[in-house]
């Protein structure tokens, strides 16, 4: 910028009126060092501004001078005694005072940044930890359910193996019991070991009874029914259930009885029967 454009820019008037920002003051100070015309114009403007200020003079209260010199005397005495503490330093330009040294500002800024960083990191870690905890719990739960399922399968397998042993025994006799006229689709099978006399029953197809009833197996010995015990049906029941043993029998039959069985069969509730 040329000297004349500095003079017409309004910078001088802004400076003199106290309006200029610190960067504007610096700019004008550089221009005054460079151009004597700018410096001269500033001087002239400054003096006119001061004249305006002087026009607004007011005589201070008469007692003020006395007060001032009392304070001055006190302070000078203290200074002479070495007890004076310098209270202030004057800011020559209206720059706001820096209350905290820049080093401490940087340290404070760094500390705040570290704190923010730490909080973010903590939050992040906590979220991750929560996620992992949930996944761990889910996996532990599924693991234990797999283990219990495995137990169920192992038990079923063992049962199946036992059943296979029973059936494979060469002295085992199979007695098929088809449905009676009343229940034509029913079917059950008796496995009777001729050597050990053990009896097993296998349900092929019997309707699920109400909870107060159970099926009961009978052996017909010398024309008379002999109780062989009650047995379970449904998916939870063993495929082959061990019943009471019998030495001789002409026939086996199943009736539906009250829970726990009856001493005599209820003949109209005979579901299946099979001759040896």
């Amino acid at each position: 910028m040329s000297a004349t454009s500095y003079i017409s820019s309004g910078l001088i008037e802004a400076y003199v009126s106290g309006l200029a920002s610190s960067s504007e003051r610096e700019e004008l100070e550089l221009a005054m060092a460079q151009y004597p015309e700018v410096a001269a114009e500033y001087q002239s403007c400054q003096q006119d501004m001061e004249q305006y200020i002087i026009y607004q003079s007011v005589t201070p209260p008469a007692t003020l001078k006395e007060r001032l010199f009392t304070q001055l005397d006190t302070e000078e005495t203290a200074r002479a005694n070495g007890t004076y503490v310098d209270e202030d330093a004057i800011p020559e330009t209206p720059v706001r005072k820096v209350l905290v040294s820049s080093a401490w500002r940087w340290i404070a800024a760094a500390a705040i940044l570290l704190l923010i960083g730490s909080v973010l990191l903590n939050y992040n870690q906590y979220t991750k930890y929560n996620g992992l905890q949930q996944r761990f719990e889910a996996m532990a739960a599924s693991n234990s359910s797999i283990a219990s399922e495995t137990n169920v399968y192992r038990t079923k397998l063992e049962q199946a193996e036992q059943n296979l042993h029973i059936v494979q025994d060469p002295s085992m006799k199979t007695v098929k019991m088809p449905g009676t006229k009343t229940f034509p689709t029913a079917l059950a099978t008796v496995y009777w070991n001729q050597t050990s006399k053990e009896v097993f029953v296998m349900v092929n197809n019997l309707p699920q009874p109400t909870s107060d009833k159970q099926y009961q197996l009978w052996a017909i010995v010398n024309g008379k029914p002999v109780d062989m015990g009650v047995f379970e049906t449904g998916t939870d029941a063993n495929l082959m259930q061990k019943m009471k043993s019998v030495d001789n029998a002409e026939m086996f039959a199943v009736t539906l009885e009250k829970k726990g069985g009856s001493p005599e069969p209820t003949l109209d509730q005979m579901y299946v029967a099979g001759k040896i």
Partner: peptide
């Protein structure tokens, strides 16, 4: 326009002085 207004005000002030 603040600086321009200020400049005009001070120019006027100086002329009056």
């Amino acid at each position: 326009t603040v600086k321009t207004r200020m400049r005009n005000a001070i120019i006027q002030l100086r002329n009056l002085l």
